[in-house]
Design a protein around this nucleic acid. Sequence first.
DNA 1: CTGTTAGCGCTTTCAG
DNA 2: CTGAAAGCGCTAACAG
Lengths: 349, 349
Amino acid sequence: MTDDGVGTGRSAPATLHDVAREANVSLATASRSLNGSTRRVNEEYRKRVLEAAARLDYSPNLSAQAVARGTTTTVALLVADIADPYFSSIAAGVVAEADTDRLIVTMAATERDPERELELVRTLRGQRPRVMILAGSRPATDPTEGALAEELRAYERSGGRVVLISRNELGLRTLLVDDRGGAEALARELVAIGYRRFAVITGAEGLRTAADRVDGFRDGLAATGGTLDDDVIRDAFTRDGGYSGMRALLERGLHGVELVFAANDVMAVGALSAIREAGLVPGTDVAVAGFDDIPTVRDVTPALTTVHVPLEELGRRALRLALGDGEAADEGAVQTEVVLRESTPRITR
Amino acid sequence: MTDDGVGTGRSAPATLHDVAREANVSLATASRSLNGSTRRVNEEYRKRVLEAAARLDYSPNLSAQAVARGTTTTVALLVADIADPYFSSIAAGVVAEADTDRLIVTMAATERDPERELELVRTLRGQRPRVMILAGSRPATDPTEGALAEELRAYERSGGRVVLISRNELGLRTLLVDDRGGAEALARELVAIGYRRFAVITGAEGLRTAADRVDGFRDGLAATGGTLDDDVIRDAFTRDGGYSGMRALLERGLHGVELVFAANDVMAVGALSAIREAGLVPGTDVAVAGFDDIPTVRDVTPALTTVHVPLEELGRRALRLALGDGEAADEGAVQTEVVLRESTPRITR
DNA sequence: CTGTTAGCGCTTTCAG
DNA sequence: CTGAAAGCGCTAACAG
């Protein structure tokens, strides 16, 4: 069969060359009509090209454009776990913002494995993305930390821009979230409504986000007279980690703890279930607070007190920051806001 | 400054050419050492090339490879809404599976807008992805339906593979989910534990997934003696849609309805909140069941009865199917499974 | 405004 | 086994 791109058989996609021939113009004219910057092409020719393109079902080869132009329209996004609402909300923001700039997002998941993260960065770099956004903190004491930073720097040196969301890697652009301040404010408000004895469930030691939140919470208590003692349980920074962390806490006895602060909402939700399973009533027998304000926490019972983080906005701002939007850079840390709900009823003593 | 790729200044990324020069071998040898199929390169040379590459921090330009090879390592994924747990779970599966094949995933969100979807498919096609996966049903009666199908077919004709998850587009590969059978089984089980009077909250008319579920549910009731009457409320296929749909239902009066079946879990969760807000106790005053078994439904109260869909597995299988894994193709519709939880307690009458 | 042509970075014949 | 050279699809000078 002839390779005219119309038959039912399988054929290579039409190239710009094909379009030019079909329209009886030069390659350059075809290129200019289809993609060229300012329209400095005869309307007549232009029309012919557009029609030919439509007829052949032409779709510009982005890879070829990238090679020729020396620049891509790609944004790379690296998250720990796509199914986690924290990350999927951020991803939604990145994708939405990218879309307004007609950028394409490629996404990968580290599964919280630093080695994997490093390898993914290496692969993704091959795409020559304009921007690379990494979300999700890694252990502070990770052995591959240096290698990652080096890789990222090499990428920046070659013209890329990286933005880290809420984590620190020496010398790289970071979109800061006021985790610490938010946790501190939360602690204060909780003390203000009557709580005094607290326990904390958090992620592995060294996770920056988790650590900041716990530190902030501690500060807030210290300033207002709440006590945390040494009630800090560490477990996976996931729903199941929250669940098993809470179980651990219950097993060793609450000993007067009135409120459990989980360093993120998914953990808090897991904790809620553990409490309920133990035959206690969350909010009544023991209060729970989380952090992030992921969508579902309004719908659990009792609705969860938490610290609101504008997750989707985080994704949007990260991209804007990476693209060099000065404004975004100047705004400082993203502000968080305490949201008191039923999981922490006011108590009178 | 010299452009040696080592200084602190900004410099273009090292090319294969640079590596070849640095290693004192030809371009071809460098290429073969770094990426070439079977190692038919002198070990000595090979080593030199690898070292040079490391020294220059070389990262192969994927776009250039794509142009030269005429094929990419890209998978395109289109979903309605990334932040929706249904889609983010599927996406997690696609990304995980892609990773094992060293494929890169690019992701876009249609925001449930058919026009947008069409445009995205057009853009994504420019990437020449090996595979395109579309999840999330579109209205059956959409005017752009034909254009989409045509676009997709053109893509397939040019060598791409498309897989639709749980939706029908004339003549395209589809990963079927047994929505209908699952809903029917659910209906039967609900009748078996005592329910008789039902209402349904579902998405917009014409959404295939939603329609199948409602039809299946109806069939199940018909076979066992439950009644649905005309209690079918339509609203957005989202959490908020479930919430407002439930409110609508409550406002016009339950009139003896014992159980509300929401066509997906996010709607069911919204419904739960609406019920509670109305001062009723879900599960006790009115039972609720959903569909999908997204992670959070174990953690709401009461835990939600639903039909389990292996969401992440769906993503994995979609990709395998697209990549032409025969096995995946032969397995038929993905099976679903009823999961009875506390939101639908057994009732005796 | 239009066409010719030299690349972009990489792969892959095709000779040595 | 190695290297020279011809592309891959597209863009961007550069001449007309």
